[in-house]
Design a protein around this nucleic acid. Structure first.
Length: 271
DNA sequence: TACCGTGGAGTGCAAGCAAG
DNA sequence: CTTGCTTGCACTCCACGGTA
């Protein structure tokens, strides 16, 4: 039985929906409930959970902050967001913090059950979770690494913070210029870094190369535009920085497995 | 809309340098 | 010895043109 932490950041409670759910039948037990960001942080720090479900109706920013906190404390904790109507920026932030599933409003009880079943499959059985925890895949950072000593640890933390700041600036640049041709060289020049060095830093902190990140951002925006707008495919290609529609088709298919047109037919909500 | 070949541009990686 | 950064080059990416 997987222990769930349920966080309801919305003033419009989802208590009715969650009480209608047969958690046990879905393989879960409700292990904790929090009504605010502070409560959630405190609860998460005290106890261990297999899944965190966050209801964010009118609280996108708090929801994202909670995701950030949880991801910082526990790299592989399964996260599920429900409710709200995320814009592209929020969706991207959610992706950044490794949110595993997002169920936008309005959603039915059946859809929530499906998502919970999918999450359970992703989590695996309890022994897997326990093994991951004991291997250190689930990393609680509070108090960890103290054995290296105060000053060294502080310097390392400072360096990491500095790096994170640099990486954030790179990401902000990408976000602002997604509709233009972006090169790491251009960014590194503007930030007074060697481009290879910046590429290394980026890969170290993000576990993906700059190009992979750029492609991911472009493709996710393209998917969003295909789903939510009636823009022509060449217009979407331009909006995500592709001058050549041909190349956009190629990259989109390799990223999603289907052509842009087929993707729109499968997912469009404007159709 | 999709696939292929080509060549220049851009990137990642390993090695190395300098400073502490 | 470690850390922060740079350099050089092999390799990948991507624009472009052609074709179906």
């Amino acid at each position: 039985m997987h222990k769930v932490m349920l966080v309801d950041l919305s003033p419009h409670s989802i208590a009715n929906q969650t009480h209608s759910l047969d958690w046990r039948r879905l393989g879960y037990s409700l292990g904790g409930f929090a009504k605010s960001l502070g409560d959630a942080v405190s609860l998460f720090s005290r106890e261990r959970f297999s899944l965190v479900v966050i209801h964010i109706r009118d609280a996108h920013a708090e929801g994202i902050r909670l995701c950030e906190f949880i991801r910082d404390k526990c790299k592989r904790m399964p996260l599920m967001l429900v409710g709200g109507r995320m814009d592209f920026h929020s969706a991207r932030e959610a992706m950044h913090y490794g949110v595993n599933d997002y169920l936008p409003a309005p959603f039915t009880l059946e859809e929530m059950k499906d998502s919970l079943r999918n999450m359970r499959e992703m989590i695996g059985d309890e022994s897997d979770t326990a093994a991951a925890s004991s291997r250190g895949d689930i990393l609680y950072q509070a108090g960890a690494g103290d054995e290296t000593g105060g000053e060294t640890a502080e310097n390392a933390a400072d360096a990491r913070l500095r790096d994170v700041h640099v990486i954030d600036r790179v990401k902000a640049y990408v976000e602002e210029s997604l509709d233009q041709a972006i090169t790491l060289k251009e960014i590194s020049t503007s930030m007074h870094f060697n481009c290879s060095y910046l590429g290394q830093k980026f890969k170290y902190h993000e576990n993906m190369t700059f190009n992979e990140y750029l492609l991911q951002q472009r493709m996710e925006k393209a998917k969003f535009l295909l789903e939510h707008t009636g823009l022509r495919i060449y217009e979407i290609a331009n909006k995500v920085g592709y001058i050549e529609i041909d190349w956009f088709y190629k990259k989109f298919k390799s990223y999603t497995g289907v052509s842009a047109n087929a993707y729109r037919k499968m997912h469009s909500i404007t159709a």
